[in-house]
């Protein structure tokens, strides 16, 4: 295909029939600070794993909220748990616990 210097994003609308809220509900219940994330992306800018992969915590949190299990599962496993995002987050999201809770939800619901 011809390279125009830009690409077209996938359709971002949420298909409510496919949105699986189990992880989102589990995390919100056990680490409510996920609710105050403003998707600023500071965490992503500092991310250690982000240097080597396209792990993106901002997007990951969105994926969780949108109920996109496949995306969530593929991305979460790359995290090194280093805690840089925790220190960087301007909102006080308890990011490491959000990550732990996502992992636990994946295990709990055998996703």
């Amino acid at each position: 295909m011809k390279n125009f210097g830009y690409s077209i994003n996938k359709d971002r609308q949420i298909d409510l029939d496919k949105s699986d809220q189990r992880i989102a509900l589990f995390v919100k219940q056990h680490e409510p600070s996920i609710n105050i994330c403003i998707s600023c992306g500071t965490c992503t800018a500092t991310c250690s794993a982000g240097n080597y992969t396209n792990l993106n915590l901002r997007k990951l949190i969105l994926s969780v909220k949108r109920g996109d299990i496949i995306e969530t599962k593929a991305e979460i496993s790359k995290c090194m748990f280093c805690g840089k995002c925790l220190l960087a987050c301007p909102r006080g999201v308890n990011t490491r616990n959000v990550i732990l809770k996502i992992n636990q939800a994946i295990e709990k619901f055998s996703l």
């Binding site: 080597y52 496993s77 790359k78 992992n103």
Partner: peptide
Amino acid sequence: FFPENNNFEYLQPI
């Protein structure tokens, strides 16, 4: 309490 989900295979080729 910590599920073993991590996967650092992406580091191998680096």
